[in-house]
Each structure stands twice: as structure tokens, then as C-alpha cells.
Nucleic acid binder design. Structure first.
Lengths: 342, 342
DNA sequence: TTGTAGGCGTTATCAT
DNA sequence: ATGATAACGCCTACAA
């Protein structure tokens, strides 16, 4: 293993000079900087992570706690994980992957051992039991999702309420009067994950403003569940001409079932999906969709945690930041004017 | 922060005793063990990760290098990442997430800094440029996937050749004579990722043995691409009654297109998917599928890397292990006897 | 602009 | 069965 002392010897300077060249924390003459840097390259020196963490009391690692459940659309989770990782690298940080089945003890373990300087948590429940732990330990954290009480934390999430409202507006603009909202399975609502309720609330509020008659039905995302949900909707409101789907798993089945039941999209009924653009493009017809950027979510969370770490390191109290990303409606081929009354 | 010295003082012993109680590396009287352990609990002590890594020359971290490309089915990647993380925890290890856009330099960085004791790499290409680096650094690694030259490494993968053969057998058993294999986009073949070729080779070999006429067509996984692929297949071989799909993105479109073209599954044509059971269950009809366990892949990779680390630590040369997991064919509702000649 | 030296918290080698 | 103590490699006041 090549140490800082090896580099120092090779460059003919002291090890502190090497350290300062690398950290940039004090002025170094151009000449020695060059010499040191070429020694670093030549010897293939990488500072020992453990020693650095010990001496500087910073690990340059952030932990990312991911959910195990699969009722969140998995590709989105992965996209977030990857964008977090890449954004962290930009700050010289690495990412430690933790599963949230470790729960509050996981938070204690990571914080207590100094393994990570901060924590990014996905899939936070509104009254998550990890949050008080975070607070009591003084651990820096950024949530992807919103919590009831976010004091001492930073949060970022999609603005689901606006997403819901965009759906209602679009359908109303097209002249639809009876619309249905196909949501997540009831488990998601019971867990108080927040995003499901917020979307629905936004949709409901705008739908009422615009004078839409609407229906909300939960749906597990399987074919059978979607079939049942659709059947109930059509039984209760045969005149429904607009559908909003939030559960990604229900999209394919819904389109198939509508076709099977003799309804053509978008001539007879319109469908809006709340999902990634990439997914919306995969169907036939290509779906009008409301989307927020998963990448952006990860990037912002990293910025937030970095800001907090920097503040703490400077002896300041970190600011509790809260960001809502505005979603975008992209009109494709699955929505059209409401059919004339027959 | 609570240190080992705090615990020692609290328990009335020396810090080395605390260390040994925790590591179990030497005999401790039952009485002091109890005292130390309750002090640990009471104070909420967690060994400092940096100090431990520095002194023991082991970080208790494995790095997991994941691909950025999305032409691998993302939920499977995530499932592997999570099973790796949970399996590693069982061994007292944490997982560092690295994106493979860091390339060979990423390997150097991780190995050189001692950040990780070993490396698990996903989506390895047959002649991956990271492999020689691994070898020259003496870094312990386990690949998920196969490499041309796996000396100095452990590997685990699905037995894709058997998977392909299972598909050919099942269709032959049902009396099909003309079958088509819908593969991945040509990019996947050009990248020499291996699994695509291996599946195809296994399928082709068995198909020939069983006297099947077959066709292979690549497919990008979008709706349009699938439509084109299917059209070409039906133009070249109108009598095709059996389909094998490897590209997960093509499954939904294929089913829709078959239905649109007036073909009923499984009465007119049979469809086998090479995908996760969970996905196969989502379609209507539920798909006969050939599956390997993604979780198992992650678990085995962790066992392999742990074995290597343990060996190195004991001064032995780690064995180059290679495991192929046998896939399973599950018959569901998308395959049936070949229709009688008309 | 550069060097010296103490300390970060653990592990593991000697002692006892 | 337990203690003292020297590394481990780096950072950062403090000196010069």
C-alpha cells in the first residue's frame, strides 16, 4: 500500500505538504504542487479512507436507506439511487446502501459508528419512527418524501398535489365530465406514505373546482385487481370517460381491459398516467402522462445533505430546507376530447 | 461520541478487554463479558468505523458496481442490489454503491483507498477492461455474470444456456414445429454481455436436436420495435406457432400485437417469457416463463466475496469459484399444444 | 511557503 | 484472564 509518507519522500516534501496539496486548504507554490501531484500519479496514491475518516472525523460517505417493498415502482427507486450516487461523487462522496428493514437501529448504527456523515432516506412514512432517532442523535438527514414533522431535516419530493391537479385540469379542458382515479392499493394509503393522499387531494380539489364528477378507487396493480377496479367503476359510473392511473402496474391491464370492453383510447375514453415518461412511451397508444424527474429528486437530496454537512462542519446550524419539484404534463395519444353525448 | 475508552472506564476494565469482548478473539470470563456488554448497551457504543478500518486493515465494506444502462431489466438489478446488501449485513458487512461509469479508475480508487475489502461487479462484459485492473491490484472480486478470463475471480450467473434449452424443449413437447426467439436489441449482443448469446445458443442447440425450425430476431423492447420484429417474423414464417421472448419490454407489446392480429394465446400461438415470475404473473394470460432467482445471485456473490476475503485474511490464496444457477420453467396459461395443421 | 508533531479510536502484540 | 502500549495513515494546529 502506498501512503502519504511514500508520496512525500518521492516528492521531497513533508507529508503535511502532500496533504495540503490534496485538500487545497493552504497555499502551495506552483512548483511543489506540480511535483507532489506527479508523485501522486506516478505512485498511484489514494488516501486511506479509514485513516482519513479517523483524523478528519468525516467519512465522506452518505448512507442511502432504501425500502424493501415493491409497491413503489422499482425502476424509479433505482433511478434515484443511481442519481444519488453520481451526484454524491461530484462532491467527493460515496454512497452506502442500507435497507430500511434495519429501522431505527440502522440509523443508530450508521450514525454511532461514524460510517456515514449523513443519511438520505427514501420512502419515509409520515410519522416515521426513524425521524425522532435522527433528531436525538443530531444526525444530518435528507428525506425523499415528506414527513409530518420535518424539524431538523431537509426534504425533497415531487409536488404530487400539483400532479393531481394537472390531471383534473387536462381532463376538464378536454370536456370530460365524469372521471375516475385509479390509485394505489389500500396498503399504500394505510402506511401514510403521503404521496398517494397528496395526489388524490390535489386531483380532488381541482376536479371539484372544475365541476367534474369523480370517483377514487384503490388498485393493487395486478391484472385481476385492475379488472375488478375497472368493473366497479363502470358499474357505478357507466358514463366515465376519463381515467387517471397512479399505480404503474395497473396501466397495462387497464389498457387491455378497456380495449376488451370495446372502448377505444382516446376516442371513447381518455387515460392519463402518473408515471415516468419512459414508461408512458412504452404503451400503445403512447400515454399522456404527468411526470416528475426521479434523477432530480436524487440530485436535490444530495445537495441538501451536502449543505447540512458543510454547515455542521463550519460550526453553523444547518437550515431545514424543503423542496417540491413541479411535475410536468406531457400530452400524447391517450387523451382526447370527450365523446359527444350519445 | 462514545469511544471504547468510555466503555472500558464504565465497565472498570481496559479498552483491550472491551475490544476482545466485542471481537470474541480471546477468552473472557463470563462475568466481565456481561459487565462490558451491558456498558456497551447502556452507553450506546458503536466502534468507530474509520478507526477500526485503520487498525484492522479491513473496512468491512464491499463495493457493488452497478450498470447505468437500462437495457437490463431494472427491477432485477434492484433485487440483486438489495439481496447483496442484506446478505452482506449477515456477515457484518456494509455495501458501497458504485456506478460502473467510474470504470477501471473506480476500481483503483476503491481498492487503493482501502474503502472496500472486495468488489461485486454486475453487468460484466466478456472482455471487461476492469478485470485486468482487478487482477493487477490483487483486489478480491466476485462477478455477477461471466467473463472470458475469470482467473483470480469468482463468478455467479444464471445458466442461460439451460434456460434457452428449457424453452425449446417445452415448445417441442407441445408439438410446435416453427418457433421464433425474440431477443434483446442488437446493442446487447454487440456489447458481448454474454447472457443474450448464451440463451440463444442453448435455445438453438436444443431446437436443432428437437427438429424445430426456428428464427432469431433482435428487438429493442419498445412497442414500435416489437411491432416491426413481429411483422418480420410473420412475413418470413407465417406458420410460426411458438414464441420465446427474452426482452422484458417486448412482452406487453407482443401480447397486444398478437391479439390485434387475431391470434389467441395459447390456442393459436404459445408464448414463453424469459423473465421474473412476478412479471410473468402480471399479464393476461399469465405467462409460462423460465426464471432464475435474482436474490440467489446476490446471495451467492456475497458468499463468494466473503470466502475470498476470509482466505486472504488467513494468508491463503482464495479459490476461484464459479457457480451457474439452474433456471426453472413454470408452466402457466400462455403455452398450449400446437394447433392442428389447417 | 513549508515542516513538526500530536492525536483521531481501534486492533493486536507483548507482558503479566 | 486481563492490561499496557505501539502501530495503523492521515489531518491540522502550531512553529519556523
Amino acid at each position: 500500500m502506498v501512503t502519504i509518507a511514500d508520496v512525500a519522500r518521492h516528492a521531497g516534501v513533508s507529508s503535511s505538504t502532500v496533504s495540503y496539496v490534496l485538500s487545497g486548504k493552504r497555499a502551495i507554490s506552483e512548483e511543489t504542487r506540480q511535483r507532489v501531484q506527479s508523485s501522486v500519479r506516478e505512485l498511484g496514491y489514494h488516501p486511506n479512507a479509514g485513516a482519513r475518516a479517523l483524523a478528519a472525523r468525516r467519512s465522506h460517505i452518505v448512507a442511502l436507506m432504501v425500502p424493501l417493498r415493491t409497491d413503489v415502482y422499482v425502476p424509479v427507486m433505482m433511478e434515484i439511487a443511481i442519481s444519488v450516487t453520481m451526484a454524491a461523487r461530484q462532491h467527493g462522496y460515496d454512497v452506502l446502501l442500507i435497507t430500511n428493514d434495519e429501522g431505527p437501529d440502522g440509523v443508530r448504527r450508521i450514525a454511532g459508528s461514524g460510517l456515514a456523515d449523513g443519511l438520505i432516506m427514501m420512502d419515509v412514512e409520515l410519522d416515521d419512527e426513524r425521524i425522532p432517532v435522527l433528531r436525538s442523535l443530531g444526525t444530518q438527514a435528507a428525506l425523499i418524501g415528506l414527513a409530518d414533522d420535518a424539524r431538523g431535516l431537509s426534504c425533497v419530493d415531487h409536488d404530487f398535489a400539483t400532479a393531481g391537479a394537472l390531471c383534473a385540469d387536462h381532463l376538464a379542458d378536454l370536456g370530460h365530465r365524469e372521471v375516475a382515479f385509479i390509485g394505489y392499493g389500500s396498503g399504500v394509503y394505510h402506511r401514510h406514505a403521503g404521496y398517494a393522499e397528496r395526489t388524490l387531494t390535489g386531483f380532488r380539489g381541482r376536479a371539484e373546482q372544475r365541476g367534474l364528477r369523480f370517483l377514487h378507487r384503490s388498485c393493487e396493480g395486478t391484472y385481476e385487481s385492475t379488472a375488478g377496479t375497472l368493473a366497479r367503476i363502470l358499474a357505478d359510473r357507466p358514463g366515465t370517460t376519463g381515467f387517471v392511473v397512479q399505480n404503474e402496474g395497473a396501466i397495462g391491464p387497464l389498457l387491455t381491459l378497456l380495449r376488451t370492453s370495446g372502448r377505444t383510447v382516446p376516442e371513447d375514453v381518455s387515460v392519463i398516467a402518473l408515471c415516468q415518461d419512459q414508461l408512458a412511451e412504452q404503451f400503445a397508444p403512447r400515454l399522456t402522462a404527468v411526470t416528475g424527474s426521479a434523477q432530480e429528486l436524487g440530485r436535490v437530496a444530495v445537495e441538501q445533505i451536502m449543505r447540512r454537512i458543510t454547515a455542521v462542519n463550519a460550526g453553523d446550524r444547518p437550515a431545514d430546507d424543503r423542496v417540491l419539484l413541479t411535475p410536468v404534463l406531457t400530452v400524447r395519444d391517450s387523451t382526447g376530447p370527450a365523446p359527444r353525448q350519445s
